[in-house]
Design a protein around this nucleic acid. Structure first.
Length: 556
DNA sequence: TATGAAACTTAGCACTCTCTAA
DNA sequence: TTAGAGAGTGCTAAGTTTCATA
């Protein structure tokens, strides 16, 4: 049957079927899940490692990609196509000459077996969606990946020796008579200043329409020149993974002029800004300064350099806690992530979570206020000693809010008691004992009623009676200090979370910031490295950790 | 000079694990 | 003790760069 209107299809049944199945799987007893995992691990064990130059090395993606529907990112023309199962007959094995070749599954054979030691992959196949080659390679903690990581950062550091010349040259060439040179100079400026990617040509028929520097189109760049915002360029385009790059920058006057020139009629929507430039030409030019210098190196260089500068000018107060120091480090990390435009989607629950923190803070403030009222009950003279302001209702807490809060607390107590009662009863029944009568529940709920009565009394008399066994002003003050610390922590958390909601720190940490900078920070400020790097990252960056052991003052 | 394949790095998201506050 | 959030990891798509070939 031909499907004419996709939106009229009802997938509800399929959806619930799999959702239920998934939930059933999740809610199995822990022991069962554990046993299943152990079994799976046992099966996979032989495939997780290989021998490389005599060393045992971890293999990264040893599982072949399963069949499924291709999603793709953004508006990909091939979304929804069937990604087929890969058969052994499509897989090429790359292995040492003298090594024993792993057996293909029963009744199958490999496409080919080769012994090429000039590349690093162990197995290879071609996927059917885009015809791209997929590889099985070593894990990030392997020696070979570590070496190439080190090489990458050393290459970026090498750029320090040339950057002044390069900048002077492109500043000069911004005015070049030759259009090609002028475009190239402008492009290098953008790559250097705003960390744009190179921007290779793409096949618009078969790929999502995304761009980088060299492939920027007319409509991606808007020029604005007002007294308030002179020489302003607004970039708005989809970059890698169809992530939007939407930023406004004030640029060099000549760059502004050039972009205006490159956008001049008859160019219009869909036309290349840099019609006389492609990534090959650009990289060829860059490599004349330094062997292996390409557009990509600028991103690494600028990210690591920025991090170094930020960390160097960091003011870490004496006696700062580890949490505070990690926050400062993350703030630097965040600036680099913003430079590289590393984003993540804001989770659906973000707003709600922010509200929750706010409520939590208010709750703490209310508790503090109550403790203070109790102090007053114990020692009325305090009001004069500390001033009325100390005991006043804090900003943001209204009488209404308090009533709501009290009602909520009473209700919470009520549900908790009821829940516990039901649970206890279930246990009794399970043990073949007699359950408690409903009357008992009513008795238990009296606690909640008492609380409600207490609030009512307090609200009327505007006085809070001291709680607990032997209350004292000292004890109450200690409680207040604890709560104040909690408020501080929650406020830091809230600010952190909101500033972080659409910035992904992980990509820059994993790929762009020289890990030696983080190790130096950890040593210099006495922050345990595991607070900055997870186990996987520490394994990936062993080479960096070793370097810094010998040179505590290492600089990028 | 253009084109395509090969080889590798970079990227965000979904899922799982782990820790923490209530 | 447990829910729920955050951290961490696995997955694989999507880039860049290099190299071979026409």
């Amino acid at each position: 049957m031909d499907i004419k209107q996709f939106e009229k299809l009802n997938f509800e049944e399929i959806y619930t079927y799999y959702k239920d199945k998934n939930e059933a799987r999740k809610s199995r007893p822990a022991a069962e899940k554990k046993a299943e995992k152990a079994e799976k691990d046992e099966i996979e064990k032989p495939y997780q490692f290989c021998k490389w130059d005599g060393r045992k090395e971890k293999v990264g993606n040893f599982r072949i990609e399963p069949p499924g529907l291709f999603r793709g990112r953004g508006e990909h023309p091939k979304t929804g196509k069937l990604k087929q199962r890969v058969m052994p007959e499509q897989v090429t094995i790359n292995i040492g000459k003298d090594a024993s070749v792993p057996k293909a599954p029963e009744g199958h054979k490999w496409k080919a077996v080769q012994h090429d030691n000039t590349c690093t992959w162990l197995a290879m196949w071609k996927e059917n969606i885009n015809g791209n080659t997929k590889y099985v390679m070593l894990a990030a903690n392997s020696a070979i990946k570590g070496q190439s990581d080190l090489k990458k950062f050393e290459k970026a550091r090498e750029l320090k020796q040339h950057i002044d010349t390069i900048r002077a040259d492109y500043t000069r060439d911004l005015k070049s008579e030759l259009m090609a040179d002028r475009q190239r100079a402008t492009a290098v400026y953008l790559i250097d200043k705003f960390a744009l990617r190179a921007g290779n040509e793409k096949d618009t028929e078969n790929e999502a329409e995304t761009v980088g520097c060299c492939s920027l189109k007319y409509e991606h760049v808007t020029l604005k020149d007002t007294p308030d915002e002179p020489n302003t360029v607004i970039f708005d385009f989809l970059g890698k993974d169809s992530i939007r790059f939407h930023q406004s920058f004030q640029v060099d006057a000549q760059v502004f002029k050039n972009l205006k020139l490159f956008k001049k009629a008859p160019k219009s929507d869909g036309d290349d800004i840099f019609d006389r430039l492609n990534t090959t030409q650009l990289n060829k030019y860059l490599s004349s300064y330094m062997k292996g210098l390409t557009a990509k190196v600028f991103r690494t260089y600028n990210a690591s350099w920025t991090m170094q500068v930020l960390l160097n000018k960091l003011k870490v107060p004496k006696g700062a806690s580890v949490i505070d120091k990690v926050k400062l480090y993350n703030d630097c990390n965040r600036e680099v992530a913003i430079l590289c435009n590393h984003k993540r989607s804001v989770g659906a629950s973000h707003e709600a979570q922010m509200g929750k923190i706010e409520d939590k803070i208010k709750g703490y403030m209310y508790d503090i206020w109550r403790y203070k009222q109790q102090m007053l009950s114990l020692d009325p003279k305090l009001k004069k000693k500390r001033g009325a302001a100390y005991f006043a209702l804090p900003d943001g807490l209204t009488e209404e809010w308090i009533l709501e809060q009290q009602a909520m607390l009473v209700e919470k107590k009520r549900t908790n008691i009821t829940k516990k009662f039901q649970k206890d009863n279930e246990k009794l029944v399970a043990n073949k004992e007699k359950p408690m009568p409903e009357k008992k529940l009513k008795e238990l709920l009296k606690e909640a009623d008492d609380l409600a009565a207490q609030y009512k009394k307090e609200n009327k008399s505007k006085k809070v009676e001291p709680e607990g066994k032997s209350p004292s002003v000292d004890k109450l003050e200690a409680n207040i200090t604890k709560l104040e610390q909690r408020i501080h922590a929650a406020e830091v958390q809230a600010a952190d979370r909101d500033g972080n909601k659409e910035v992904a720190l992980s990509t820059s940490k994993l790929n762009y910031i020289d890990p030696r900078l983080s190790v130096v920070f950890s040593k210099k400020f006495d922050v345990p490295l595991e607070r900055l790097f997870s186990k996987t990252l520490r394994d990936k960056f062993t080479w960096a950790i070793k370097t810094v052991e010998d040179d505590v003052d290492w600089q990028f």
